[in-house]
Design a binder for these strands. Structure first.
Lengths: 340, 340
DNA sequence: GACTGGCACTCGTCTGTAGCGAGTGCCAGC
DNA sequence: GCTGGCACTCGCTACAGACGAGTGCCAGTC
């Protein structure tokens, strides 16, 4: 593992040049474009060591070197500083996000902004219901046997479900139901609701019980358990940048993976507080994405995390720039949500 | 224009073979695979005429023939019968669509179903607000100066907006507001609301007027005028089928076009009642989609149309099959909405 | 008059060869 | 430990030739 400073500098230079030019980089070009202070031959020796250690490789014998996933990993961990954003980028972010009228709008703008700034595929998870608290529950009568249940979360998310009641219900009873569920559930986290919902059913007066039972089923099944998560996606056209070299020639697996909500959630939904996660190529658990890298982070008002966002691109990506942008956007979105 | 029956049969055979094999089709192969009852030489003469008329062309001199956009157009208009769906397909549609819990779910399932059945990119427009009527308006107090406006349309669409009031409002006043807007607006088409909303403001009692004014602004601006339309998309991975031959080698323009909601709406949103629209290649107004074809139709409960849906694929597409599938799916979705 | 078999021709594709050049590994020398 | 030099590798490009699918045309047949 004896990588001295110069070898690390060589690796850094290789990564930077390859990301910039998309072409395998040779020893001669390296010394010309970077002040390494040594000759190509010396660099070649260093390269041989780097290759032996698995940080770079040659696509073919007479070509220059290309970083491996492991090489990018080392680069990200030890050789790069997060680039500060340019004032222009900061301004772009602010300009893009002010004027959002509701959560849908915020998420939409964010995902497009992120795709535009990083020139990659952007993914934004709506604030997770699991991490939201109930702000209000509304029951709107649609017909005598149908209610529209509208749940408003503190994160701004609004979900609605149709509730098909077992029998007709009087307007007063709807009012009672509304009062009861709000008294019991407002302010609680959705992940903590199941026992409370059960209690609501158990404690309800007999003539409300059938309606309450149905209501609780809908609440639990569709809001707490089932596809509670939503995802926004933008920038798929960016996959076609860099010709067909990235992603080893086929966008197929990538596009397929991006169609699966489950996959996307896995990518960006497991954010730990205030960390930016970088998954490079093979580190990715999803087979279809073994040729791609993902940079993701959590966001939320203040220090709490309510959802994740990130970008996906070729392993040959500008990590420092991307990481900076992802973080900055996440921070701005957090602030926006906090104002709410 | 003297295209006799045999020439038309030749054109049909060329289209069918080319769609199936994706390779230019020659005279010899044609007579082998279709019962034309004549020799290759005769077919060649017919082909020469068809080429002169602009229905087919040769990619290069020593290759077979390929249909032109004009050829596909003739094929669609006069040479093909809409294929009846297989029982398996019918079953797939039914199975896929039952069990949808709400509109979001219906649209989501529909778009995926359509992508899967046609093996192309599917687009489904949510029921247009412009063609919806107001079923109910709900005002939920979020804080003393904030209301959540929830609009439920008869098509099942639910939209919510945050209303930032000019000053604090009492609970009773919210109740009054709610009653007033519902009295006035329930049952009206959204496209007809502007004068009614104005009347609401004009007629409201003085102490409610500021709140009503703000409310009306939100109603008009965000629900009636601005991005009232929503779109769901699926199956982009299908663009990569057929290698890079379709779409003349680059998915870029297609993917870019698919990211623009406006473009998608234009594609499928202009449906006339009960017609299936087929746009082939160059007939497309959007430059980025000149290499693609679009099959779209309207859907809605009963005879009314509330939105559009369709698919996008290479000009080399199975038109009869695609048209049949698009129609069938639209019909099923309409029935589903009618039950609501 | 319409169809057919035959034939010469075109031209894209494939294969093989040769030259070029970028890049390397190694080695002797400083 | 670094450097300059040198032989070597090998992908890329260009070019030539063989091949073959497919065509257009024409003379002959029904």
């Amino acid at each position: 593992m004896g990588l001295d400073d110069r070898k690390l500098a060589v690796l850094r230079a290789i990564v930077e040049d390859y990301v910039a030019t998309q072409e395998p980089v040779g020893s001669k070009a390296l010394v010309e474009r970077h002040q390494l202070g040594v000759s190509p031959a010396t660099v070649r020796n260093d390269m041989a060591v780097l290759e032996e250690e698995g940080y770079i490789r040659q696509p073919h014998t007479s070509a220059g070197r290309v970083p491996t996933d492991r090489g990018y990993r080392l680069f990200v961990d030890r050789l790069s500083r997060v680039k500060p954003l340019s004032p222009a980028e900061r301004r772009a972010i602010e300009r893009f996000l002010v004027g959002a009228v509701d959560l849908d709008d915020v998420v939409h703008r964010t995902v497009r902004l992120l795709a535009q700034l990083t020139r990659q595929v952007a993914v934004v998870q709506y604030p997770s219901l699991a991490r939201s608290s109930v702000r209000h529950l509304e029951l709107v009568p649609i017909s005598t046997t149908r209610l529209m249940l509208v749940m408003i979360a503190d994160t701004g998310r609004v979900e609605q479900r149709l509730v098909e009641l077992p029998g007709p219900i009087a307007a007063d009873d709807v009012t009672d139901l509304r009062r009861l569920v709000n008294e019991k559930l407002v302010g609680t986290r959705l992940s903590e609701t199941p026992p409370l919902v059960q209690a609501l059913v158990d404690e309800s007066v007999p003539h409300l019980r059938p309606a309450m039972t149905t209501l609780s089923t809908v609440l639990l099944e569709t809001l707490v358990e089932r596809h509670e998560e939503r995802i926004a996606l933008a920038g798929t056209a960016n996959l076609t940048r860099g010709g067909l070299l990235d992603f080893q020639g086929s966008l197929r697996p990538i596009l397929e993976a991006l169609e699966e909500e489950v996959v996307l959630l896995k990518l960006i939904g497991e954010a730990e507080p205030s960390t930016t996660r970088v998954l490079i190529g093979d580190e990715n658990e999803i087979d279809n994405l073994r040729a791609a890298s993902v940079v993701s982070t959590g966001y939320g008002p203040g220090a709490t995390i309510v959802g994740g966002l990130g970008v996906l691109g070729p392993t040959r990506m500008d990590y420092p720039g991307t990481i900076a942008t992802v973080r900055a956007v996440a921070r701005y979105v957090g602030e926006l949500l906090a104002q709410n």
